[in-house]
């Protein structure tokens, strides 16, 4: 019991750094969730291009980023690019790396969902006189977003959990600060247990928000 008391005293003393790390985690999470979704939509749009070469390049992009570990990409940019004279901040590397990776996954979810759209609706939109971009924006995208919602929300959860790897490129987010705390008080079990519980709490909040969003954007009436 005394052990836990002194542990929480350590946490309390280190609280400003932990809070700062948590803020950095949430900042990165919020940015890559938005940029990853926008990037995924752009990649998805390119994947529907009538131009065969554009489609192939897009497929190559998706395969490359899904097939490459994110940490390799982050190290390549953070440790590799300076050798070519390009220096990026840890946050910039994290945002760019995550965005390219998450965009590929989101595009894949959207492409799978696209197969669930009735082709006659797209033909009807063209027959009404909508442009290609309007058909995408008004018919294709709203439906694919709805159909891909479970995959997209799972990706949001992964964004939060995976953000913990960016401590490896010197971005001082929550996990990095908890590691620092563990290195100070040597209470590894307690520190990482607390770290896991905080991530679980954050993920639970994201799950609740995601399920609420799914219910809102996917009314029972248009599920079939």
């Amino acid at each position: 019991m005394t052990g836990w008391l002194s542990f929480f005293q350590d946490v309390f003393e280190y609280w400003p750094q932990i809070l700062g790390g948590l803020g950095n985690t949430l900042l990165l999470f919020a940015i890559v969730t938005v940029t990853g979704l926008i990037g995924g939509i752009l990649v998805f749009y390119q994947a529907l291009s009538p131009n065969r070469h554009v489609r192939r390049i897009t497929e190559g992009y998706i395969s490359f980023f899904i097939g490459t570990p994110l940490i390799v990409l982050l190290f390549l940019m953070y440790y590799g690019l300076p050798q070519t004279g390009i220096h990026l901040s840890p946050l910039a590397v994290a945002v760019i790396g995550f965005t390219m990776n998450v965009a590929a996954y989101n595009a894949r979810y959207l492409m799978s969902a696209y197969n669930g759209i009735d082709a006659s609706e797209l033909e009807a939109a063209r027959a009404q006189g909508f442009s290609t971009l309007q058909v995408f924006r008004l018919v294709t995208l709203p439906q694919t977003l709805r159909l891909a919602m479970p995959g997209l929300t799972n990706q949001v959860i992964l964004n939060l959990k995976d953000s913990s790897i960016v401590f490896l490129i010197q971005y001082t987010e929550f996990f990095a600060q908890m590691q620092e705390l563990a290195a100070r008080n040597f209470q590894y079990f307690k520190v990482y247990l607390l770290t896991g519980l905080v991530y679980l709490l954050l993920v639970s909040l994201v799950v609740l928000a995601a399920r609420w969003l799914e219910r809102r954007v996917l009314p029972a009436a248009c599920r079939t």
Partner: peptide, 20 residues
């Protein structure tokens, strides 16, 4: 072509209503 299509109403076999 888009202006042409706007002058021609098209009703499809499978209704093709936007389900969302």
């Amino acid at each position: 072509v888009r202006a042409l299509r706007q002058q021609i109403g098209f009703v499809f076999q499978q209704f093709a209503l936007y389900r969302h």
